[in-house]
Design a protein around this nucleic acid. Structure first.
Lengths: 331, 331
DNA sequence: CTGAAAGCGCTAACAG
DNA sequence: CTGTTAGCGCTTTCAG
């Protein structure tokens, strides 16, 4: 920048302003500066600029698992909306680990990111984490997982409705013994379970404790959960799984046991991951609009970042959508 | 930092050094500084530090598609190795778009990242891009896709061997009419095709032009490709697909046509994506050690970043591994 | 072992 | 429309 200024015999300030198309610079000077900058292949030093403007144009995205296609999709949605505004995205994998997550957030904060989107591994938001974020005045948006204990921007899906929708669908397909392979003790896991129970009640089926088994989040665990259910004296004829990977595992479990899907056991998942249609049995699911979640969160974050005054936290819940494929179709 | 200094009645410099555990600071002073820093919840400003040290401890990762589980896996591998060294990772999606990729790299470079890992969308490396990287002296490692036209660090897989391995396997399973749903005109696509041809020759099968169809990279395209093959007067009895998503689509195509896998058509993919085992027919594949690629690239990058003197570019090729599941098992 | 001086590359605020 | 002055928060260098 100094070089440009000297070459052109103007001051450094003029160059700085011209480069940023500041209004009060003559069209002609601006052109000359731009031309020379091009020639010298000049690129502004963002670090220096950030130091004085206090804006880094970096946004953080902390997610529990990039490999889970739900989060990959969310990440894409976020990127799609943030990049046009000039933000770069720093993605961190917390590996479902609260400690790691805390560290990552700390790192990001000390890098002065302008905003943060978090799908938290925490069930109850740590005081530590909140304070960190609030003291640094980093605007942030929570997605998918809403930890208790803080009123913050949140974009997610109506978990209870997912559970209810899936369960009712199984009932409508004629299932009478509907089980649930549940997720972890998180708001999502709990919400979906609640929806499941609500639907059972509504359909006049009575809840059975042995029809709710733990299944974690992935296919291995889903398969194990299913095997447990099949080992019951009276195995279920319909299973709502916490998410699609679990459901995929569950399908595997049924087939490996020599039974059929949906003939012997109808199965439905949640999340509509992109390969659902390619599974052993095309998987019925409840769509949670993954990339829309990402986009919505990103839009909200941009709004927060571009206004100075902190705004009222906003909750957005995206309504789920039933997608019926073969795994649950019995009629 | 200034606050700490004033509170303790020492100079700013002393604090700075104490915070970084510089050798020439008394143990006692160091403790006092650390304690006060803790109390004030002080965090170093990375921006300011970077401005003077010229190190940002950020590494860029540019990939064509986060949704493709291969790249998600690579990203995880990279993160696993880079984070322990204190680097944060800025991930950019180029969406298989050369323009976007160029822009992303430019952005990253002007943010003074310390190093870069790229799975390029470019077939022939643009002069522009090379110059950009070289002029900024950003060490970089290419992965998976090696664009022609530059001698650089590269970590990838032996594409030709993948093609040969897969094709020979089909032959050994008794397939006589082996087709290939090929990838794009990239080094990978071309390499795998070459391996396919080489294996045909080795097995004494004669190549047929109509047995090589375009299939892109994803399942939709894979399905289309398969339908084209099935429409031939003499459809193939074995198909090697460019990658697993394409193979998953191909399986769908076969089944939807009322044929069986592997009975009528044996299928094999490449990449060993994590859900391969859950597909309609568990997919045989050639594993390319995705996360190992990420890890290896990261290690190489760290080595480059930590040494001042530019080192000889290094090529690492990871040998592929055949994984036989149901989709190709005919014996 | 501690500190004073200088500056990283850039921009905000104000004065010509 | 252009330029001057000051400083962002930190580290490097060198002198106490």
């Amino acid at each position: 920048m100094k070089d440009i200024a000297e070459d052109l015999g103007v001051s450094l300030m003029t160059v700085s302003k011209a480069l940023r198309s500041h209004t009060d610079i003559s069209e002609e000077t601006r052109k000359r500066v731009l031309k020379r900058a091009q020639e010298l292949d000049y690129r502004p030093n963002w670090i220096a600029r950030s130091l004085v403007t206090r804006r880094t144009y970096m946004a953080g995205l902390v997610i529990p698992d990039l490999m889970h296609s739900f989060f990959a999709e969310v990440a894409k949605g976020v990127a799609r909306r943030l990049e046009p505004h000039g933000y770069q995205i720093v993605i961190s994998n917390s590996d479902e680990n609260v400690e790691t997550e805390q560290r990552q957030i700390e790192m990001l904060a000390s890098r002065n990111i302008d905003g943060l989107i978090v799908a938290s591994a925490q069930t109850t938001w740590r005081k530590q984490t909140i304070e960190l974020l609030q003291s640094n005045k980093v605007p942030f948006v929570l997605i998918d997982r809403e930890p208790a204990g803080v009123d913050a921007n949140y974009v997610g899906v109506k978990d209870e409705e997912i559970g209810a929708m899936a369960t009712e669908h199984l009932y409508e397909q004629g299932c009478q013994r509907i089980a649930h392979i549940r997720g972890a003790e998180t708001p999502n896991g709990v919400g979906r379970l609640r929806g499941y129970k609500r639907a059972l009640a509504k359909c006049g089926l009575k809840p059975r404790a042995d029809y709710v088994v733990d299944g974690g989040r992935n296919d291995t665990e889903g398969c194990d959960g299913m095997l447990k259910l099949l080992a019951l004296a009276e195995p279920p004829d319909g299973v709502f799984c916490y998410n699609d990977p679990v459901a995929a595992g569950a399908i595997k479990g049924v087939l490996d046991s020599g039974l059929r899907v949906p003939g012997d056991v109808a199965i439905i998942g949640a999340g509509n991951v992109h390969y659902s249609d390619l599974l052993r049995v095309p998987l019925s699911t409840v769509d949670q609009s993954s990339s829309l979640i990402g986009e919505t969160a990103a839009d909200l974050l941009v709004a927060c970042m571009e206004t100075k005054t902190p705004r009222q936290p906003k909750h957005t819940l995206i309504p789920p959508r039933l997608i019926v494929r073969e795994s649950s179709r019995r009629k």
